[in-house]
Amino acid sequence: MTTAQVRKLKNGIALTVCTIAAFLGLFWLIFILWDVLVHGIGGLHLSLFMNDPAPPGIEGGGLRNAFVGHLIITFFATLIGVPIGILGGTFLAEYARGRKIARVISVLSDIMVSVPSIVIGTFIYAVIVKPVGHFSGWAGAVALAIIMIPVVLRTTEDMLSLVPWTLREAAFALGAPYYKVIIHVVYRAAAAGILTGILLSIARVVGETAPLLFTSFNNSFFSANMNEPVSSLTVTIFQYAMGPYSNWHSQAWAASLMITLFILVLAVLGRLLLAWRYGKRPTI
């Protein structure tokens, strides 16, 4: 073989290997999603959403408590985490723009995004659960909020930085104080981006299990009282999947399907929003 042929051959092999790698990635995605769909769809009955759990081993029963509990915990986590994240991001992109403190907090938030979530669970156990003396929905919501804050903060910072500076100058020239400029001009211009950040942060925490294990714990009964242990879908999935009963397994699969669908819809929506408004993609 001539050198040119050898080079061509090597090129062909390398490109094929890379293409196989890409399809391997896609293969896992499709394999997992398909598996969750096939297993989950069998457990989807109306009773899953309408009934509370039956005693172990008895057929019937559902996960109404877990669905409602999960919704409440996520709702309060969003209520705590999103405002702090947006305000924090505002400081970095506006008042502290270009200053060292903004760089430092920005980098620290990026690190916080990837800190193991189970560590946050142990932290909340020490500062909320132990002093109060029992597990509670509030503890779970705060743990999830802590995970949300850096995600929302970083996207808000990025999105506000994309708003052209001249827009602010135009508002300053009309005599508006900075807070009015931020609220009426900058937030409006960046609304789609901030919304994306919120969507992605919800997608991030809705599937979290580890931080809920020792904060909101679990509850086999229906409870919407945030001062008591509140059942969540993810902790229930963990408990049911590790349990010995086959109807537990099928309910765990159905719950997994619902969570996966919810998260994928949010993630895809967030991505489309970003692509449509800014022509970019989120950093994971």
């Binding site: 896992w28 997992i32 997608a203 299990t209 993609r281």
Partner: peptide, 15 residues
């Protein structure tokens, strides 16, 4: 699509 793999929660991977 490959980044969506990152969106799937870890409990689903566990199941």
């Amino acid at each position: 699509a490959i980044e969506l793999l990152a969106a799937i929660p870890s409990i689903i991977y566990g199941m």
